[in-house]
């Protein structure tokens, strides 16, 4: 696989098509996310952003095309295999486990790396404790770790899910509209919470809030009707005529 512009690529999506019966959700998408970059994905509703993220994570199988991750072709890999290879995600629909405590939600996410035997013997319960608490502190969820996750506010549930995804120390984090339904303050806080992860992992984020994207993303891809309209450095792309036509004035 060809590294683009010096930095090695983490994710390489090539010619991915996804056809649902008669509807073409993705019509042959190319996308590259380089190491330690924050990559924004924008486009009108129904343009295929979630479908693309799902195809990358393995929740959907592309009808055509390939997905490369850290130099391996993972097009046929199961979600579990992709996750173990270093991919973490937050779906558009928040899916924490409401009947488990906040702490146990994160424990469930991080202990996934351990063997079944280690889990049977509860061998990593103690060693993982600090990592979990660190994560909860970072996302301001540490004040009641034994609270039921379902009792958190909507914004906190989104943070919890990001915390769960990040606690696994992924190489690539996929976030689908993480700030949907958040207050402006919560949005700003989310941006601040995500900034430091750049040192450890790349981010591919779907987001409607363009100010948010401008603040944190280096590169930007614009989708419209399942096709890439434009892609490149954030400043350039967001000002391009094609994008303005397809997205901002659509």
């Amino acid at each position: 696989m060809n590294p683009t512009s010096g930095a090695s690529s983490v994710l390489e999506v090539r010619g991915v098509k996804k056809i649902y019966a008669t509807l073409t959700a993705l019509g042959g998408v190319d996308l590259t996310v380089t190491e330690r970059s924050f990559h924004g994905l924008i486009g009108p509703n129904g343009s295929g952003k979630s479908t693309l993220l799902k195809s990358i994570a393995g929740a959907e199988t592309p009808t055509e095309g390939t997905v490369g991750f850290l130099g391996n072709d993972i097009t046929q890999a199961t979600p579990a295999e992709r996750s173990r290879a270093g991919m973490s995600l937050k779906f558009q629909i928040t899916s924490i486990l409401p009947m488990l405590s906040v702490y146990d939600n994160v424990l469930l996410a991080v202990q996934a790396q351990d063997s079944m035997l280690a889990l049977l013997l509860s061998r990593t319960r103690e060693p993982l404790h600090h990592r979990i608490m660190d994560m909860l502190v970072q996302f301001r969820l540490d004040y009641r770790p034994d609270e039921l996750a379902g009792a958190l506010s909507h914004g906190q549930q989104q943070w919890l899910e990001i915390a769960m995804a990040l606690a696994r120390e992924p190489k690539l984090l996929l976030l689908d509209e993480p700030t949907a339904g958040m207050s402006p303050q919560e949005r700003r806080a989310t941006g601040k919470l995500l900034a430091p992860i750049r040192e450890r992992c790349s981010l591919l984020i779907v987001e409607h809030d363009l100010d948010f994207i401008r603040d944190i993303c280096d590169t930007l891809t614009v989708l419209d009707q399942g096709l890439v309209v434009d892609s490149g450095p954030t400043q350039i792309v967001q000002n391009s005529a094609k994008v303005k036509e397809a997205y901002f004035h659509a």
């Binding site: 579990a80 486990l97 049977l120 696994r168």
Partner: peptide, 24 residues
Amino acid sequence: SQFGLVLAGIREQEARITFFGYHV
């Protein structure tokens, strides 16, 4: 045990758990 936590996860959100890397 921590194994039991995985089972609790399977009961609540089986599909979600696979994205953590569990072979359900």
